[in-house]
């Protein structure tokens, strides 16, 4: 069944049509990839789903209900978590603290009990910590637990971002270029993790990625975009051999910079 649906979504920045009448749906338990040249509108679609942008036309449905009435900070509570293309971590905090921020949507205690650190706050902290530790074990971040982000190498930061998104216990994970800037080995790790996220955790994954190696390895379905429009949808091999897609990549119709 369809978990996340975009219906005829259009977004304009001034004269530029960044997303042009795009529709697709992501089924539960699926790994769905968005590909396309720079400026195709992939990250913009992520920002639409995260509600940083509001579409000019169309609707975005999650579990059959529109999310256009939600603020960006309400989106995680629905069970949608995301990473960013240019890593957006909390630089002056440790990895552990970063992941605990991911637990924000599960925080239940009021201001007063937090000020006196009541037993219920302590219990909640222990529970958050337990979840976070599971994620740390899963992504093998034990060595970095108490390290500050500012001192971590790029590849590790990328994993911490994934970990922070997982710490929210999402139903859908939006990964914005999870493999960009990673080495071959790190990309290989990322492939295994995405497969595990799908199979073991049962989390639906929607990702933007340029690395076709990773896309073909993990994706069930792929949507190719160019200039904000849909080009082709299907399995990775179908899309890769689609004439329009080949033309878009080689023919140089790439639009303005993203």
């Amino acid at each position: 069944m369809s978990l996340l649906t975009l219906e005829n979504v259009t977004l304009r920045f001034g004269g530029l049509v960044a997303v042009n009448n795009v529709s697709f749906h992501v089924g539960e338990g699926e790994v769905f990839a968005l590909v396309g040249p720079n400026g195709a509108g992939k990250s913009t679609i992520f920002n639409l789903i995260s509600r940083f942008y509001t579409p000019a036309k169309g609707d975005i449905l999650f579990n059959g209900e529109t999310i256009l009435n939600k603020r960006p900070d309400q989106v995680p509570s629905l069970g949608i978590a995301r990473t960013f293309q240019n890593i957006e971590l909390f630089e002056q905090s440790t990895v552990l603290q970063n992941l605990l921020v991911g637990r924000q949507r599960h925080a239940k205690n009021g201001l007063l009990s937090q000020l006196i650190f009541s037993p219920s706050v302590r219990d909640e902290e222990r529970r958050h910590r337990a979840v976070v530790e599971e994620v740390i074990d899963f992504l093998e971040l034990q060595a970095y637990r108490d390290k500050y982000i500012a001192g971590l190498p790029y590849g590790v930061r990328k994993v911490v971002e994934l970990a922070r998104a997982l710490a929210t216990e999402p139903k859908v994970l939006l990964l914005d270029e999870p493999a960009s800037g990673l080495s071959v080995e790190e990309t290989q790790d990322m492939i295994f993790w995405i497969e595990d996220i799908k199979k073991q955790m049962g989390i639906t994954v929607l990702m933007v990625e340029h690395d076709m190696n990773l896309v073909s390895a993990v994706s069930d379905r792929v949507l190719a975009l160019a200039d904000g429009k849909e080009l082709a949808i299907g399995t990775p091999s179908e899309v890769q051999s689609h004439p329009d897609v080949i033309k878009a990549y080689l023919g140089g119709t790439g639009g303005a910079k993203e």
């Binding site: 900070d73 995680p76 925080a107 205690n109």
Partner: peptide, 30 residues
């Protein structure tokens, strides 16, 4: 009270806003 706050979710939300508003928002901080 200050120390308690900084080890509770609200204190972490403060620091999150300081370091990256966009990211804090994406993690569910109003």
């Amino acid at each position: 009270a200050y120390r308690n706050l900084m080890r509770a979710p609200l204190g972490r939300a403060f620091v999150a806003i300081r370091d990256s508003e966009i990211s804090a928002q994406a993690m569910g901080v109003n």
